[in-house]
Write a protein that binds this DNA or RNA. Structure first.
Length: 513
RNA sequence: GGCGCUAUCGUCUAGGGGUUAGGACGUGAGAUUCUCAAUCUUAAAACACGGGUUCGAUUCCCGUUAGCGCUACCA
């Protein structure tokens, strides 16, 4: 592998949201390109007019950028080289297949004139009959190639008669081989492939549309792709593509077929297994670096066999396509959650808070009207509670210690009732109330600690008998963050004018009724 | 049916002709803190099966089984 010459591509169809399987393919391509100083090309495979939508294409690009995966050539990519090329008038563009139709047409003409491809007039019914025959004999269901050697006269007659025809490639005798970085050498006998359709017959007077296997090959060759990294569902397509490379005399690239991602039931991962789109992971509050880290780990083992957490630059250093596993891997939400907790803990607080704000809905004012003081306060709130959640959409619920004070609910919550029924709890709360009412300013952790000490020495109650009822009065739960951290957050939040009752309010409302 | 790909703890993986088969997630136990979180310690947990080759195979070869993919004028 020579540096600088490597060219790889990610070629999604814009027929839906980017999901984890595709994202992993994109990531491996990106990693391989960055690792070797190569070029990553984004190509939109939108030949399927009915299912392709522009909004999916732009969403796709947004998701890739969110993951931190940029590309060097492709549609909509700003930057000197591409600004000029726009949506693909560059050396290697266009980067949308729908804009490359003339290119395919030209290639087809070349193949036809060189006799490497031929017109096939077989009807769907004829083909079907052929397949049935082969199947009944337990033979590979392939095309017999009967139009291959039609006499020139007969062919002309068919054309003149306006018979629809498809264009097929002539497959040679030699086995079709390719090298796969993940699986080693792979070889298919030519008989198992048979002459594949390159261009469909025209329908409703429209010109024939080239098929997928043909256009990817043409695009990959013309875009000078050196390494085709894609899902292993394409492995059986590869011999056909190799045949196309050979027909044109193009150099066959290296391949790397990535294994499938499975759900916990060992079936292909799909919506049935829960969230699979990148967008939905973002919405749930996963950090992109966690997702990327997990996707990299899924189906790949670091050389030392021990490292688990990687930043994107670290991955670029450590990643080796040759170490990617060939066997399918089950997507494990638990491990992803662990990695996300790890990312949450190492994420700069300000950035974390900024992402987290959106998950608090009505609990916080609109982000545009926020004061700087609120922001700083919120950063501390997030910092305190973030280690306790798997993903950010759970954060607001955790922060109910601060936001959601409901004395009635606190009193009757199952395990709370038991604690509060104790005599000691009543004594502690009465003591706390007198302290609180006598104190008019905001409560500081120091003062609060003094109160607790007072109560302790006055009543002899200590430990959990002391702390649990107090915590219930303050937060509605006997468990929660330390008073040292909790008290300032409550008092400052209240002072900031947020919908947060002060310590004094809480105790009053709790003991009062 | 045909062709192809795959097979190490529940999961992701490391390893490799002789190892106490290593790590991580998750799970169990313990420690710690005023915390349903975090952290630390610790335990249980695997080479699919059958034949070869070999002094020796989990590792190499061949089968079996299972899973998956392709088998389209889908992408």
């Amino acid at each position: 592998m020579e540096n600088g010459k490597i060219r790889v591509r990610f070629a999604p169809s814009p027929t839906g949201l980017l999901h984890v399987g595709n994202a992993r393919t994109a990531l491996y391509n990106w990693l391989f390109a960055r690792r070797h100083g190569g070029t990553l090309i984004l190509r939109i495979e939108d030949t399927d007019e009915e299912r392709s939508e522009e909004r999916y294409a732009s969403q796709l690009m947004r998701d890739l950028r969110w993951l931190g995966l940029n590309w060097d050539e492709g549609p909509g990519e700003p930057g000197a080289a591409n600004e000029e090329n726009g949506a693909g008038r560059g050396e290697h563009g266009p980067y949308r297949q729908s804009e490359r139709l003339e290119i395919y047409e030209k290639c087809t003409q070349q193949l036809l004139t060189e006799g490497k491809a031929y017109r096939c007039f077989c009807s769907a019914a004829e083909l079907e009959a052929e397949r049935k025959l082969y199947a009944s004999r337990n033979m590979p269901q392939v095309y017999s190639g009967r139009c291959r050697d039609l006499s020139g006269r007969l062919m002309q007659k068919n054309i003149d008669a306006g018979l629809p025809f498809a264009v097929r490639l002539k497959i040679g005798e030699e086995p079709l081989k390719f090298h796969d970085l993940v699986r080693g050498d792979v070889e298919f006998p030519a008989e198992a492939v048979s002459d594949p359709i390159l261009v469909r017959s025209r329908r409703h007077g429209k010109p024939g549309v080239p098929v997928y296997n043909y256009v990817v090959t043409v695009d990959d060759a013309l875009m000078e792709i050196t390494h085709v990294i894609r899902g292993d569902d394409h492995i059986s397509n590869t011999p056909k593509q190799v045949a196309i490379y050979r027909a044109f005399g193009w150099k066959v690239p290296e391949f790397a077929h990535l294994s499938t991602i499975l759900g916990s039931d060992r079936e292909r991962l799909s919506k049935r297994h829960g969230a699979t789109s990148i967008a939905s992971f973002r919405e749930m509050g996963y950090l992109p670096e966690a997702l990327v880290n997990y996707l990299a780990l899924l189906g790949w083992g670091a050389e030392d066999g021990k490292s688990e957490t990687f930043t994107l630059p670290e991955l670029v250093q450590a990643f080796e396509l040759e170490r990617v596993t060939a066997s399918p891997a089950v997507f494990d939400f638990d491990k992803l959650n662990w990695l996300n907790r790890h990312s949450l803990k190492s994420c700069p607080p300000a950035r974390l808070a900024s992402i987290a704000w959106g998950y608090f809905g009505g609990l916080l004012p609109d982000k545009s009207t926020v004061t700087n003081a609120m922001l700083i306060w919120f950063v501390r709130v997030v910092h305190l509670f973030a280690p306790a959640v798997d993903h950010l959409d759970q954060l607001a619920a955790k922060c109910l210690f601060i936001f959601g004070f409901d004395p009635d609910h606190a009193r009757h919550k199952d395990d709370n009732a038991l604690i509060l029924a104790e005599d000691s709890a009543r004594i502690v709360l009465a003591e706390l109330a007198t302290h609180t009412r006598a104190h008019l300013d905001a409560v500081t952790p120091e003062i609060f600690k003094m109160w607790l000490d007072d109560i302790k020495s006055a009543t002899g109650i200590h430990g959990k008998d002391l702390f649990h009822p107090v915590r219930i009065a303050l937060t509605g739960s006997h468990a929660g963050p330390e008073f040292d951290k909790l008290i300032p957050l409550i008092e400052e939040g209240a002072a900031l004018g947020l919908k947060i009752p002060s310590v004094r309010d809480r105790v009053d409302r709790f003991v009062g009724v």
